[in-house]
């Protein structure tokens, strides 16, 4: 295994992680296409994954990577279900506009 990450390098990775997360979040908020919204959540997963791996490298163990496996699991499951939902919704109403699905408002 290579030398563990220094705190300065960790800051670099965390910075990148935060930036990617926020970009994904802004995308989630601004885009109206359901599929792109889900893509943005995947982008936020990526940001979390970078932070996870970077912390693992800093601490010099592989638990961050092991945890990423679980994150990947959840992401895959989420993607499968979300896309199934999108297909179902699209069958109901031929549009991917998230604004069209606001009947559940309080």
């Amino acid at each position: 295994m290579t030398e563990p990450l220094s705190i300065l390098a960790l800051n670099h990775y965390l910075l990148l992680s935060a930036v990617l997360f926020v970009i994904g979040f802004i995308g989630f908020l601004t885009r109206r296409n359901l599929i792109i919204m889900f893509l943005c959540t995947e982008l936020m997963f990526q940001a979390a994954a970078i932070a996870m791996i970077a912390f693992g490298a800093y601490h010099g163990n592989v638990q961050g990577q092991v945890f990423l496996i679980f994150i990947l699991t959840v992401a895959a499951a989420e993607a499968a279900l979300a896309l199934a939902l999108v297909v179902m919704l699209f069958r109901r109403r031929p549009s991917l506009d998230a604004e069209k699905w606001s009947e559940l408002k309080g």
């Binding site: 699991t73 959840v74 895959a76 989420e78 499968a80 279900l81 896309l83 199934a84 297909v87």
Partner: peptide, 13 residues
């Protein structure tokens, strides 16, 4: 979880 997600996706779609 993966198993459930697969079943769920099949049922939903």
């Amino acid at each position: 979880i993966l198993m459930l997600a697969m079943v769920g996706a099949v049922v939903l779609a």
